[in-house]
Structure formats: C-alpha cells, structure tokens
C-alpha cells in the first residue's frame, strides 16, 4: 500500500475573489498525479462548492484533501457560525446567503445538494457557535 498523498489549504475568508482558488489547485494536482477525469470532476466540484460555502458563510477555514489508491477524501473545517438545522440546509433552494452573494453567482441554495450529488459519501458535523466540518468521499 502506498502512502496517502495529502494537500492542505488555508481558505481565506476575507475576500470573495480568492474563493475557489484551492479547488482549482486541487484539480491541477490531481491531474498531475494521473487521477481519471471523471473522478477529478467530482472531487473538484464538490470541494469548490464547499470552499465557497466556507468563504461566504463561515469566514474561511481549512481544506484538506487526502488521496488514497481507491478513494479521495475532502475535509473542510471552519470555526464559523455553524448550521442549526442540517436537514433544512440540505434542501435545494434553501439559502441564508445575502443578496450581494447572489449577485456574484452563488447563494441559490444548491451548494450542499451539489456536494452530495458529486460524492459517494458526505458527512456534516456542525455546532452552532462552534463551527462546521464537512467530510466528503469519492470512491474509484
């Protein structure tokens, strides 16, 4: 068994313009190590939505990607406001994003459903006032 490959990123919560940068880098790195295009698509889209969420809802956080021989795990951890009702947050169209986020092309309440759609497993651990950790897995 080869050692897992790990990537770590600090996701800056202060400016929206950098939101998504880490996911673009992950996409490039996965391409370099020869992961198949459809797996890369799933991982990078799911991470992109999660990264955007950390920026718009939680003032940034930490992103880790762990590549193993048959799966990729994405861990997005923030110390933001947390999610009070995870089932509600998972519904398509549910969003607490302010209007200015919508004018930037996000905030349609499709992020968490997209993340679930593109991954084989998704777990949200969240406590109000403490933060949120989203763990997603793509198998191949």
């Amino acid at each position: 068994m080869s050692e897992p490959i790990r990537f770590h990123f600090d996701v800056d919560g202060d400016n929206f313009s950098s939101a998504g940068e880490a996911s673009v880098q992950v996409k490039r790195m996965l391409r370099q190590i020869g992961i198949s295009p459809d797996v890369i698509r799933k991982v990078s889209v799911a991470m992109y939505e999660g990264e955007i969420n950390m920026v718009i809802h939680a003032n940034g956080g930490d992103a880790d990607v762990i590549v193993e021989p048959n799966k990729i795990t994405i861990v997005l951890k923030d110390v933001g406001p947390g999610i009070a009702d995870i089932n509600l947050a998972m519904q398509e169209g549910y969003s607490t994003a302010p209007e200015n986020v919508r004018s930037l092309g996000f905030g349609a309440g499709m992020g968490l459903p997209n993340m679930k759609r593109y991954t084989d497993d998704m777990k949200i651990e969240s406590e109000v006032g403490v933060g949120t950790t989203v763990t997603m897995t793509v198998l191949f």
Binding site: S17, S18, G20, E49, G105, A108, G109, M110, G111, N114
Partner: peptide, 23 residues
C-alpha cells in the same frame, strides 16, 4: 447562477454569462 452550471452542465464546452468575476 454558477451553482446551476455546477449542477447541470455535463459536456457543454461554452458558457455564456452576464456575470464577470473570477468564480
């Protein structure tokens, strides 16, 4: 809406949009 693009696009090679930012 970028989330819609992320949700529904399959192999569309061209994106037309009125939005103009890095995302």
């Amino acid at each position: 809406m970028m989330s819609d693009v992320l949700a529904f696009v399959k192999d569309q090679a061209v994106l037309l949009t009125g939005l103009c930012n890095l995302q």
